[in-house]
Design a protein around this nucleic acid. Structure first.
Lengths: 401, 401
DNA sequence: CCATTTATGTAAAATAACATACATAAAAGC
DNA sequence: GCTTTTATGTATGTTATTTTACATAAATGG
């Protein structure tokens, strides 16, 4: 009795250590000593608690040090699991993930906007329950639930904001709805922001200031500022698709304005222009297919779209001075035509100071980057200095004694 | 002997409390308890040390609490002083400031670019020494030195970056030069960023995401993202003056490109256009004087400049989704003509979601905002969680036993 | 004026963390 | 194999911090 109380207390005290390991701030005992500022005795003791309850593990990797190599520590992937879902235009992609994060189990269900938020969330919940049944036995407890949504989201309030393609979702309290069914933190975030988080955490964790541009049917972007996703006052930051350019023949945009970037360079706009030229195209995928078939009209329009995107990108570079721009989305699969258009305009329009150390690259084609980004979002928040304690409380409550 | 050692140790331990008070995170004993998570005994003891050495004071203000009101704490303004200088186009404005920060003593010296960095810094140092002599007796020790410079600055390296109006300053190691003469941290920052910090810390401390636009001879901006100044990868963030717009008659900019915002709406550009119309104008000040004289050409051009600035501002709003835009600089003294032009374009071009909670206002005319911003920069850094200890070490070393 | 409420201080005992000193472990290079 | 080097664990006395319990202070509202 006395022992278990003491162990619980020790576990609660281990929160700082856990946060440092989980956030990647320290991945060895030696690094923990420096990062935490605690004595070796204390670090050892607390780390032992984390190791014994199975939250942290010693990996096989070691880091050379000149003497005895230091053993690399890491969060144990199977210590818990997350439920994530990516709502797309026609389908919802769902998965249960471990803490690496890797996908443990996944499925796809059809999605129709007409169903409205409550019915859709119910279907997501049903599917989550199915996935959860698969992994619960082997992966302990539910760490968090995270939703990717293809519209602007007010992250703090956990709701879709503003009218958008998701009719009827505006201001629906998604977090509360899901919160009634799960005893874990719930996150709702815009899909482009999650792709941005994926690119940052997964591929470029050391880059502090970067932009991810998603060029698909629509055009959007996500901003990493100072190593963290930047959302702006209402979660609408990065909305570059509706920046307008003046021109005599400014096309009409879906948003009702004239000359938006999206109406010039979005997948639907290129498809529109291709259709005018008598080619069969409706979606961004069709556009890329035509480019891959080497149709000159499609190549020309894709390059021109790159130039248009490059025009906004140059604004973004002037305003934010990032060190990296990653271009993803369906149009990015059209190869270098898009990219070279973007590069051309950025280097033409920005001052040398801003472009001297700037890299502009294509993202790897990846269909589940929003999903993995959603998992990173959970992990980053749950293990953040301010919230590890809550995590440990839940862990203590749930784990089998 | 034992007592003084113990007192030094206590003082070193008080760093967290000091940081919380100085940063404004907690301004009463009750708030300190919550914010620090320490026991009342510990807070009391450490606070007493800070009070006894004169770093913190109890103000006369109290906060109602339902019972006994809580006494408001604050950094003692006279516990130290800072030296700040603002390098302008023709003059350098220097000041010694207390920790409020208020100006204690100030002076202005002439400035010529031709002198080059070393000679100029020598003159700044001489003047600083004079100011320091005035305040040293009454205000303890030197907390920091901060320089405002009218060009892009790589804040981390403490140098001017890129070719600019300051010929010969590019890559000169300002921080090291000054560091040889002062045993205190040295800061070098761009003037627009400092004005932004001033507006944020002094007038809108609770706004997390805002933009400050300086419309003077040139045009620039500063970004507060998540409550902190955002500098970008090389310190060039906010450079909206050289964003280009296409148009048939794009004017040539000072930077060598065509159609930059600055070449259309900067003070020098408006003066150029007024001179073409036969009016006497060379500087932004002349432009404002003509507007105040109700010259219709000047009013028209100022409004048009507002529209041009509004065009970039709308890009900035789409990209960053701030909740506040403050417009300052000499042209802002021309009254509402500039502002209404900006508002017009922002509301015309941005999506309702981004503008629904957006305020766009004029800054109070203030000549020393960069100077005060420079002081805030020192205070924010010196009292930040990571650096309070260094501050306390210097304090301990300097203070008369 | 008095009860209530919250702020604030302090002594004493209990607990947690640290520094120190010593011991063992695991690699690299000779 | 041996020395060197750094990593890591543990016992012990010391120091720091918290908890607990009690006391006083300064406001509000009846």
């Amino acid at each position: 009795m006395v022992k278990s109380t003491r162990e619980q207390a020790s576990l609660a005290n281990a929160s700082e250590i856990l946060s440092l390991i989980a956030s990647g701030a320290a991945n060895s005992r030696a690094a923990l000593l420096v990062a935490s500022g605690m004595s070796r005795v204390t670090v050892t003791q607390r780390l032992n608690v984390l190791l014994s309850v199975g939250l942290v593990e010693e990996t096989l990797r070691t880091l050379p040090s000149g003497g005895r190599p230091t053993r690399v520590l890491g969060i144990k992937g199977s210590a818990g699991f997350m439920l994530v879902a990516d709502i797309g235009e026609t389908h919802i992609h769902l998965a249960a993930m471990n803490l690496v994060p890797d996908i443990l189990a996944q499925s796809t269900i059809a999605f129709s906007i007409a169903e409205g938020p409550a019915a859709t969330l119910q279907r997501i919940k049903d599917e989550f329950d199915r996935l959860m049944a698969e992994v619960r036995a082997s992966h302990g407890f539910l760490v968090g639930v995270s939703l990717s949504i293809p519209t602007p989201v007010d992250f703090k309030r956990g709701r879709v904001v503003g009218p958008s393609v998701l009719y009827g979702w505006d201001d629906f309290d998604i977090v509360s709805w899901l919160g009634r069914h799960y005893d874990a933190p719930i996150y709702v975030e815009n899909d482009v922001n999650l792709m941005t988080i994926y690119e940052h955490r997964h591929n470029f964790p050391d880059v502090d200031d970067m932009i991810f541009i998603k060029a698909g049917t629509g055009i959007g972007s996500g901003i990493i500022a100072g190593g963290k996703i930047f959302r702006g006052a209402q979660g609408a930051a990065g909305d570059i698709g509706h920046i307008q350019f003046n021109s005599p023949d400014a096309p009409l945009c879906r948003c009702g304005k004239l000359g938006c970037v999206e109406a010039r360079a979005g997948g639907w706009a290129i498809a529109r222009d291709l259709a005018e030229k008598g080619l069969q195209a409706e979606t961004a995928r069709d556009v890329v297919a035509l480019v891959e078939m080497q149709k000159p009209e499609a190549i020309m329009l894709l390059r021109r779209a790159g130039q248009t995107i490059g025009e906004v990108a140059s604004d973004v570079v002037s305003i934010l001075n990032p060190s990296l721009i990653v271009v993803g989305g369906m149009l990015a699969r059209g190869g270098d035509f898009l990219l070279s258009g973007i590069r051309e305009l950025v280097y033409q329009r920005c001052l040398p100071l801003a472009t001297s150390d700037l890299q502009i690259i294509l993202a790897e084609p990846k269909t589940d980057s929003a999903l993995i980004g959603a998992a990173h979002l959970v992990l980053d928040d749950v293990f953040s200095a301010g919230k590890v304690k809550e995590f440990l409380d839940r862990f203590t409550a749930k784990r089998p004694c």
